[in-house]
C-alpha cells in the first residue's frame, strides 16, 4: 500500500521536474513558430544585412540593430568587466572577512534595483552630462554602455567572488611560501585557478547586457542606424522589439518575433559557452 503511494509521489515529482524543460521548449517553439517563417519568407540575407527598418514600407532590415546591440554590449563589458573582476579579487583577497560580509550583500542589493530605475538615472543624470561635456544627443551608445556596465557589475562580482573563494587556500599558501607577494600570488595562482568561473561570469554578464531592454530603451536614443561614434544614438534588438510590439500586427509583428529569434539564438550560444566553460573548469580541477 505505502510503497505504491511512494511510486505515485516519485512519478508526480518527476512530472514537476519537467516543468522547466517544458517551459523552455514551449518558449522556443512559440518564438520560432512566429519568427522563422518570416525570416525564410523575407530572406535571411535581407533580414540580417538589410539597412532599412521601415515597417510602413514593408522593409525589415535589422543590420543597424545588430551592430548597435554589439556596440552597446561590448561597451558595457569594457566598463563592467574590469571593475567587476577587480572588485571580486579585492573583496576576496585584500579585505577582512567581516567587511566582506557587509559589502557582498550590499553589492548583491545592486542587482535588485529595477532596470527601469537605472535607465531613468541614465536619462536624468548621465545623458545630460554627456551632452554637455562630450557632445551629441546624450542618449547614446556611451550612455547605454555605462548604465549596462553598472547593471552587470553584481553578476560579475557575485559569480567571480564565488569562483575565487573556491580556490583552495593551500594554493595561496604555496605561492606565498615561495616568496611571492600577496598580489603576485593572486595573479599568478588565484586568478588562474578561478579562471573558468571568472570567464563564465563575463559571458553570463554579456548575455544580460545583450538581453537588457527597458534601461536601454530609455538611454540609447533609439535611432535606427549604424553607429559611427559612441556618442551616436542607437536602437538595439531588444529595444526594437519592446518599442514596437504594442502597436504591431501581421508582418510587422512577425518581424519583431524574428528579431527575437536572432536575439534568442545569440544568447543561447553565449549561455552554452558559459555552461561548457564552467563544466570544463570543474573537470580540470
Amino acid at each position: 500500500m505505502k510503497m505504491s503511494g511512494e511510486k505515485a509521489v516519485r512519478f508526480g515529482l518527476m512530472l514537476l521536474a519537467f516543468s522547466s524543460l517544458a517551459s523552455l521548449l514551449l518558449i522556443a517553439v512559440f518564438i520560432l513558430k512566429e519568427g522563422v517563417p518570416f525570416i525564410i519568407h523575407y530572406g535571411v540575407r535581407e533580414f540580417l544585412l538589410g539597412l532599412n527598418w521601415q515597417p510602413h514600407k514593408q522593409e525589415y532590415g535589422i543590420y543597424p540593430m545588430i551592430i548597435s546591440s554589439l556596440w552597446v554590449t561590448i561597451g558595457a563589458m569594457l566598463i563592467g568587466a574590469p571593475l567587476g573582476i577587480a572588485g571580486a579579487i579585492f573583496l576576496n583577497e585584500f579585505v577582512p572577512r567581516t567587511v566582506m560580509r557587509i559589502i557582498k550583500p550590499t553589492i548583491e542589493l545592486l542587482a535588485g534595483i529595477p532596470s527601469v530605475v537605472y535607465g531613468f538615472i541614465g536619462v536624468m543624470v548621465l545623458a545630460p552630462f554627456i551632452r554637455a561635456y562630450m557632445g551629441g544627443p546624450g542618449l547614446s551608445v556611451l550612455a547605454a554602455s555605462v548604465i549596462l556596465g553598472i547593471m552587470i557589475l553584481p553578476t560579475i562580482i557575485s559569480i567571480s567572488t564565488d569562483a575565487i573563494g573556491a580556490v583552495p587556500n593551500t594554493y595561496r599558501e604555496a605561492a606565498l611560501s615561495l616568496g611571492a607577494t600577496r598580489w603576485q600570488s593572486v595573479y599568478m595562482v588565484t586568478i588562474k585557478a578561478a579562471r573558468s568561473g571568472i570567464v563564465a561570469s563575463i559571458i553570463l554578464a554579456m548575455g544580460r547586457a545583450l538581453g537588457e531592454t527597458m534601461a536601454v530603451i530609455m538611454v540609447a536614443g533609439n535611432a535606427v542606424r549604424v553607429p559611427h561614434t559612441p556618442l551616436d544614438s542607437v536602437r538595439t534588438l531588444t529595444a526594437n522589439i519592446a518599442m514596437e510590439m504594442g502597436q504591431a500586427s501581421g508582418m510587422h509583428r512577425q518581424a519583431l518575433f524574428a528579431t527575437g529569434v536572432i536575439l534568442l539564438c545569440v544568447i543561447m550560444l553565449l549561455n552554452g559557452i558559459a555552461i561548457s566553460v564552467v563544466r570544463g573548469g570543474v573537470r580540470r580541477k
Binding site: 521536474a17 519537467f18 522547466s20 524543460l21 517551459s23 523552455l24 521548449l25 514551449l26 518558449i27 512559440f30 518564438i31 512566429e34 553570463l204 548575455g207 544580460r208 545583450l210 538581453g211 537588457e212 531592454t213 531588444t238 522589439i241 519592446a242 510590439m245 519583431l256 518575433f257 527575437g260 536575439l263 534568442l264 544568447i267 543561447m268 553565449l270 549561455n271 558559459a274 555552461i275
Partner: peptide, 25 residues
C-alpha cells in the same frame, strides 16, 4: 543532465523574450 541543462538555459533567457512568449502564448 537534460533537465538541468533546460533549467540553465531558461535562466539565461532575457526578460523581453519571456514577454514575447507570454504575449503570444
Amino acid at each position: 543532465k537534460v533537465l538541468r541543462f533546460g533549467t540553465d538555459c531558461l535562466a539565461g533567457i532575457p526578460s523581453i523574450i519571456f514577454g514575447l512568449f507570454g504575449f503570444i502564448f
